[in-house]
Amino acid sequence: MHFNKTLMALTCVLCWAGPALAQTIENEAALKTAVSQQVSTLMQQQQIPGMAVAVLWQGKTFFYSFGQADVATKKAVTPDTLFELGSISKTFAGVIGAMALERGDIKLTDPVAKHWPALTGKQWQPINMQHLATYTAGGLPLFMPDDVTDKASLLNYYQQWQPEYAPGTQRVYANSSIGLFAHLAVAAGGKGYAEVFRKLTADLQMPSTYLQVPKTAQAQYAWGYKEGKPVRIGTGVLLDEAGGVKASVRDLATWLQANLQPEKVTDPLLRAGIAKTQQRYAKSEQMYQGLGWEMLDYPVSLADLTAMTAPEFVAGTAATVLVPPAPAVANSWVHKTGATGGFGAYAAFIPSRQIGIVLLANQRYPNALRVEVAYKVLENLK
């Protein structure tokens, strides 16, 4: 089954004969042309109803909208359309966890059970907060089982879970890992995740970023599509932390700008938290794990980037936890993919070049294609 999924993903990538690497982008007109060519081809080949794109370049942000947010009503995508971010939500969880580290509410070396004393299983004794943050606890699952619906069943699940690997030796990408890290980090400060999230987005002036879309913003909420049918994400334990954020491309560009230039963030705790997420907390092959964000040394090849999003890499790869964490490196390609049942998202930036890109779509499509479009745009910006 795993082999078949990998083969299907590779086949999808290979069957998309995308546009050749574009000419050098020297001005706004050339950027608009390049983005339009790449995105239009992608949408046609993958049958994506709508996309919103932001490019950060030369100190400005450029927005581009394509297709429909609602196929039935033919409502057009705009820079203010709300998309589900999926695992890009983890970059918010990373910053919130980093703020707890900065305050001293938690330490990376703290045993997980210190912040959840009810977690008495012996398997948890050697697992610390850094393991949770870097997906190296020992093989926690990507998704929570359906019968985990509240704190009691959550505790029962973690108590019964048995690791497949020694802590710190294998990176197995998991919502249940970083989700628990962020949940416990916030609880250690005596607050709830939603409360801290709302303050963070307010401080950064991101008015169209939500965990739950309110009635007043429902008109801006795109429908996602799966096999042609409209879908939206539901709710779930630890989903806010690991995959539940909805936002406009305008707000997500603001998020990218704050991560590109954390020194310009006014609030000192938030400024320190954002900077801390781009430190290097673990390494797996060529990828360094930040808090939420993932980094590769730059310059980087497209092949190396896409390899880090391949199903076999995500499913489990040997890892080394870095103690203490290594400093952030400006010459890095920093990125994160995200998806829900009906949406596909990607965000990437290069601090040393002060450029970045956001791709939001209301249909899921292969990670490799998201990376390819971003790479073809960013690598040609002069």
Rank of each mutant, 00 (worst) to 15 (best):
V265F: 02
A330L: 12
Q212S: 14
K246D: 01
G243R: 02
V231I: 15
E294S: 13
L291S: 06
G228T: 10
Y281R: 04
M287T: 08
E312L: 14
M287S: 09
L238T: 06
E195W: 03
I274W: 00
L305N: 01
A330Y: 07
T309P: 05
G273M: 04
T209P: 02
D251K: 00
F313I: 06
P325W: 05
A217T: 05
G316F: 08
T254Y: 00
K336S: 09
V323H: 13
A253I: 06
V196T: 14
K336I: 10
A219E: 13
G228A: 10
V323R: 14
A219Q: 13
T320V: 15
L305H: 04
L291H: 06
T277A: 10
G244R: 02
H335L: 10
K215H: 12
V314K: 10
V237D: 03
A319C: 11
F343S: 03
P262C: 11
P325M: 07
G290V: 09
V249D: 01
Q261E: 14
V300T: 10
W255I: 07
T201K: 02
A330S: 14
E312T: 13
M206Q: 02
A310F: 14
A328H: 05
W293G: 01
M295V: 09
G342Q: 03
L269Y: 07
Y288F: 14
G316W: 05
L291R: 04
Q205K: 13
R198Y: 00
V231P: 03
A242T: 06
G341Y: 01
L211I: 12
Y221R: 09
V314H: 08
A253E: 02
M308G: 04
F197Q: 01
A219C: 08
S284R: 04
T201S: 03
E241N: 10
F343N: 02
V196W: 02
P230F: 08
V245R: 00
Y281G: 02
V329S: 05
W293Q: 01
V329E: 05
V300G: 03
A202V: 02
G342S: 08
V323L: 14
P325E: 09
Y210M: 08
L252G: 00
W333H: 07
L239I: 13
M206P: 01
A330K: 14
T235D: 14
S332E: 06
P299N: 12
T309S: 15
G342A: 07
S332T: 15
T254F: 01
E227F: 11
L270M: 11
G243Y: 03
T254I: 11
Q257P: 01
L305E: 06
A303I: 11
V213L: 09
A202D: 04
W333A: 07
Q279N: 14
T337W: 04
Q278V: 07
A326Q: 14
T277V: 12
K264T: 15
T235P: 00
P311H: 10
F343P: 02
Q279F: 07
D297Q: 15
V334M: 06
Y225E: 03
L296W: 05
